[in-house]
Amino acid sequence: MAMRRVKIFSLFERFWHWAQMLLIVVLLFTGFGLHGFHGLFSFEDAVTLHTGAAMALLVLWAFGTFWLFTTRSWRHFIPTIHGMWGVFRYYSFGIFRGERHPYRKAYWRKHNPLQALAYTMLKLVLFPAIWISGLIYLFYFSWRNLPHAPEYLQGVAFVHTAAAFAILTFAFIHVYMLTTGHSFRDHVMPMVTGFDDVDLTPEEEAYLRKDQPEDIR
């Protein structure tokens, strides 16, 4: 096993990440504006931005999901207990003693177990909760004549708002995590350049050197 600089985030994945970040920031800002928490935009502008950003994000997610499955990258997100305790212990204690992060990126495991679990929950619970409730919300006027539609709308709005609070909380933690372990910059740069330190098996390294030399430095 050897640490090498390997390209672990493809161009599409990086575009996905940063576009998603931008759209989610827009959605959070405009969404909490619509909710009445601030008045930085007029309601009309906020609705336009919010809906436009949501549609763009849905398209992005459609491509992202397609990409995850066609490239087999979805396997990075399979939950695992292996190494979880070490990571958990690190964030609880080790981090305060200046210990080194226990997790080493592997070529087919680029997230630590806690990270993988968090992202999986985000993808499978929070994101679907917000986009499904959002679409139902958006198309209220197509189902408004159902009995008790206003009560349902209220429920949909609560799910949507609750998911928004949860995603905001996730975003806070996500950004804070970048400051742990290595420097902030070390965490952000892989998502910019695509390259990070990865623990490669000799076979993986040999494969990359021969077949994908541009992906290894």
Binding site: L153, Q154, A157, T161, F165, T169
Partner: peptide, 20 residues
């Protein structure tokens, strides 16, 4: 009727704000 922007659930907003 539930009017977005006018209406809210105070509990949800409180819990959400505390969470964030």
């Amino acid at each position: 009727v539930y009017i977005p922007g006018r209406d809210r659930n105070a509990w949800l907003d409180t819990i959400g704000t505390i969470l964030a």
